[in-house]
């Protein structure tokens, strides 16, 4: 790598963005890289947008990915993926996005309409190099692992993209960070197998 490898996780408070960030960072450290997680947490983020920046390189960098320098957007939620892309995506950005929507207070109340998935995907495709949309809801339901959307998305990431993680390091990262490693590893492998082909 002659410049930092930047992953931006975009989601909603409670979706496990911070846990996903920790898994990726642990895997990067295990793979022998320097790594920093740029994040903000606290009550102010309850139910709001959460962006987690993971920056991997051979030396230390600041916690925030500069504009257009994102390599991967790992989108846990369509609207937040669009928000992240609008702010920081560039020509080299590849997007992996879950299409399962988390409504906002206004869409719950019916006063605003949640943007159509197709419209979101269209813009993402224009802004970024590549967009992979996945719908993990049924698989997660089958595995009784609805909390593991974040891990599923990491599985898709590692199956489809050239990422700077050594073999086995993501699994080690998962075991180090999550509460129920057995269930999460099952989810990770399921996603990996499905998207490897």
């Amino acid at each position: 790598m002659n410049q930092p490898f930047n992953i931006l996780i975009a989601g909603v408070g409670g979706q496990g963005s911070l846990v996903a960030g920790n898994v990726l960072a642990q895997a990067a450290a295990i793979s022998g890289h320097r790594v920093i997680i740029g994040q903000i947490f606290g009550a102010s983020r309850r139910g709001g947008s959460v962006f987690t920046h993971i920056r991997i390189w051979r030396k230390d960098v600041g916690p925030l990915i500069p504009k257009e320098q994102v390599d991967i957007i790992l989108g846990l939620e369509p609207l937040e993926t669009l928000r992240a892309a609008h702010e920081l995506a560039g020509k080299k950005t590849r997007v992996i996005m879950s299409t399962t929507e988390v409504p906002t207070l206004d869409t719950l109340a019916g006063t605003l309409e949640y943007p159509a998935t197709n419209a979101i995907l269209e813009i993402l495709e224009e802004l970024c190099e590549l967009v992979i949309a996945v719908n993990p809801t049924d698989t997660l339901k089958k595995l009784s692992a609805s909390q593991d959307l974040n891990i599923y998305m990491i599985g898709v990431l590692s199956a489809t993209q050239d990422v700077p993680f050594e073999e086995g390091s993501l699994e080690q990262g998962i075991c180090k960070v999550v509460g129920q490693p057995d269930r999460s590893l099952k989810v990770f492998n399921k996603a990996f197998d499905r998207y490897s082909q």
Binding site: D106, Y114, I123
Partner: peptide, 19 residues
């Protein structure tokens, strides 16, 4: 570059207020 696309993205975005 890409300002026009970003403007369209901005029009599609809706806020996610805290509650």
């Amino acid at each position: 570059e890409g300002d026009e696309i970003r403007e369209r993205a901005a029009r599609l975005l809706i806020p996610r207020p805290l509650t």
